[in-house]
C-alpha cells in the first residue's frame, strides 16, 4: 500500500471515523466525500462521525487460501459486520476459533497489525473484530 494512502486513511482505520450526510442523514463507513444519494446537495455538508465498531456478524467466510501477507494466519475468518449505528464494514475476526464463529455473533473492535511493506517498510495498523 502506498504510504500517502494509508496515512490519509488513519482516522478511519484507527478510530472508525466515517461520515454522515448533512442533507439526508445517511451514514457511511469508510468515509465518503459526497453522499451518493444526495450528490451535489451534500457538498460541504458531510460530517465526520465516530462509530463504536461494536455490532454483529452479518456473514463470514473462512479463508484457507490466503494472500501472501496472511499465509501465517490461515485458516482465518473474514466477516461483514453491521455496527450498532447501522453501517457495515468488512474485517477479520480474531481471538475466535473457526468452529465458533456464527452469523449474528456480537463483536467489538480490536486494534491490530493489518500488514507491512516487508521487513523494512511501514507497518499498517487498523481495526479487526473479536467476540464481544
Amino acid at each position: 500500500m502506498a504510504i500517502p494512502r494509508f496515512w490519509r486513511e488513519i482516522p478511519s482505520r484507527y478510530n472508525l471515523i466515517g461520515t454522515e450526510c448533512g442533507n439526508c442523514g445517511k451514514r457511511y463507513f469508510p468515509p465518503r466525500i459526497i453522499c451518493p444519494q444526495c450528490h451535489r446537495k451534500s457538498f460541504g455538508k458531510m460530517k465526520n462521525v465516530r462509530f463504536t465498531g461494536s455490532g454483529e456478524i452479518v456473514t463470514y467466510s473462512v479463508i484457507h487460501n490466503a494472500p501472501k501477507a496472511f499465509e501465517m494466519q490461515v485458516p482465518y475468518i473474514i466477516a461483514i459486520i453491521e455496527f450498532e449505528e447501522g453501517v457495515r464494514a468488512t474485517g477479520q475476526i480474531i481471538d475466535c476459533e473457526v468452529e465458533d464463529v456464527k452469523i449474528g455473533m456480537k463483536v467489538s473492535p480490536a486494534f491490530r497489525k493489518i500488514g507491512e511493506d516487508g521487513k523494512s517498510g511501514v507497518i499498517y495498523y487498523g481495526y479487526k473484530f473479536k467476540p464481544a
Binding site: 501465517m72 494466519q73 480490536a110 491490530r112 497489525k113 507497518i123 495498523y125 479487526k128
Partner: peptide
Amino acid sequence: PGPDEDVIT
C-alpha cells in the same frame, strides 16, 4: 502474542 500483535497493538 498473536501474529498480528505487537507492542503498539
